[in-house]
Design a protein around this nucleic acid. Structure first.
Lengths: 315, 315
DNA sequence: TTGTATGCGTTATCAA
DNA sequence: TTGATAACGCATACAA
């Protein structure tokens, strides 16, 4: 007991004895066993982080920010990859719960809203990334990227350049992000007094092949297109390829903008303009919110990350 | 006790009682507490994974492969990011040890060889990625990418194309990989009866900026260069940019090859040839080796991953 | 200031 | 086949 007190800097130990204990512990390479600590029911100083695909740069950046912050605060991260499968998401949350994590951060889960809410409710604290909750729950916060604002920024930038026939390779119809970006797209057009032309919009897979075929489809319907927004950078780059292969000059004939600002965006020719969110910061912020929730702070609100337009050659 | 036996499918429980127990456990949402299990001294079914930078695609792929395999085998991965700092590497291994992990996988640590060996010796099992051990230790295996063979393959490919003045943007002088690749480079040249010209070699940071300046430096010394090998794809892409901006045609004037085959390699113009190792497979393999070590298999040997040349437009 | 008894949730061991 | 007891390593509550 005295040893425990000495090592944990708790009062009630003679200073000289404390010194001897610490010295000896050091010599012996003593490290307190975390499992035993957790068992007694304190904090486990561990948080769970659930991501669909760690090899995806988007999530990797978030993970990095989260890991860094957790480390600074003395927490360890339990990472689980779900491979976009609901079943594995379930299993992940089960595992984390069994390990007594102090809280979880869940990135864009596939789970249905109410099931997610229920699953996440078991934990002492939780932060949801890129998901909204049906009803706000205690001990839970959300962090979303302001997709509407991102899309609006893209449209306004193109309008300022003098574009007026702006296409949208909109990504998967089922994606929440895609829906919010479509929203922002329509809002910005309306504000500019422009009519929304459904023929300028095409859903597509969220990769370069999707962008390629979407660009093709839109241009066949509306050959006088003067700008194109991609659901993400890969889509935009696919569109870029189609345009270049079919005699359009970018940005003079058609300006192009993507989202996310992946490293590739700066490297293609012409360099791709993109609307970016600071994902490392998002990860940091997620952990900070989570720790505040863990500490019982009731004032933790949801956060909306404001993206910024990075203007390069393509628009 | 009977409950424990029933739920763990151990013999010594009446079948009907076992059934009732399982049913009830299910209803109650019972999940065994991992900390208590670990405390009793069984396996923790958890492995540690230490990487320098999870946001680096190279490591992200390894992590993904490792995570997948671990999940399939019922293990959970404790991920720790070290940010290329020796101190944090230390802290990471300490934390993992305190958590009673069954084994660790350490990716290209910065730690000095003997310190690494000592640190890693505390664990029941360990796998080192891209590191060699001073003296082979029990319960420890290594997985390395055959950098020498990779560099030799690159050089031979260039020789076959008719190149004979082959530059090397060699990466950080302190990197083990870089040293092995230099080795392979010199070996392949010697085999072809070519003299090694130190002026054709330039160390550089392992990113596109490094490649850019290295290309510049080498070309100023040897303007008649006809091929350039980058330490990795980012270096090669940086070199590509320098070449294009200075009027060289790739691959006609100067052929370019990189290493790693990151997704970006296929997307730049001209598409980059690269020597790739299957990193997801490496991650899978690392976990499989580790689990065999954990199970006490004495026959686990070191592994050497053989990379393959992916020939695209640039060489 | 120091030390003893107790309990966290699970499993190994031994008894019924 | 079932159940009682002890133990894992630590920290809380209480006694000396």
């Amino acid at each position: 007991m005295t040893v425990s007190r000495a090592l944990n800097d708790k009062p009630g130990v003679g200073e000289q004895l404390r010194g001897r204990i610490k010295l000896l512990a050091d010599e012996l390479g003593y490290r307190p066993n975390q499992n035993a600590r957790n068992l007694v029911g304190q904090q486990s100083m561990t948080i769970g982080l659930v991501v669909p695909d760690i090899a995806n740069a988007f999530f990797a950046q978030i993970v990095r920010g989260a890991e860094d912050t957790a480390y600074e605060r003395g927490y360890t991260v339990l990472l689980v990859n779900t491979g976009e499968s609901v079943q594995r998401e379930q299993a992940a949350l089960d595992t984390l719960w069994q390990k007594d994590v102090d809280g979880v951060i869940v990135c864009s889960a596939r789970m249905a809203p109410d099931e997610l809410q229920q699953q996440v409710g078991r934990f002492p604290a939780a932060v949801l990334v890129n998901r909204e909750l049906p009803q706000p729950a205690a001990q839970t916060a959300t962090i979303n990227i302001n997709d509407r604002a991102a899309a609006e920024a893209a449209v306004r930038h193109l309008l300022q350049r003098g574009c007026s026939r702006i296409g949208l390779a909109a990504g998967p119809a089922t994606s929440y992000s895609a829906q919010r970006r479509m929203d922002g797209y329509r809002t910005a057009l309306r504000e500019a007094g422009l009519w929304f032309d459904p023929e300028l919009l095409e859903h597509c897979a969220p990769d370069s092949a999707g962008g390629y075929t979407a660009a093709q489809a839109i241009l066949q319907r509306r050959p006088k297109l003067d700008a194109l927004i991609g659901f993400n950078d890969m889509v935009a780059i696919g569109a870029l390829q189609y345009l270049q292969q079919n005699g359009y000059t970018v940005p003079d004939d058609v300006a192009v903008i993507g989202f996310d600002d992946i490293p590739l965006a700066a490297m293609v020719r012409p360099a791709l303009s993109s609307v970016r969110a600071d994902l490392t910061q998002l990860g940091r912020s997620a952990v900070e919110h989570l720790l505040r929730l863990i500490e019982g702070d009731e004032t933790v609100g949801d956060e909306l990350i404001e993206p910024q337009l990075v203007s390069r050659e393509s628009a």
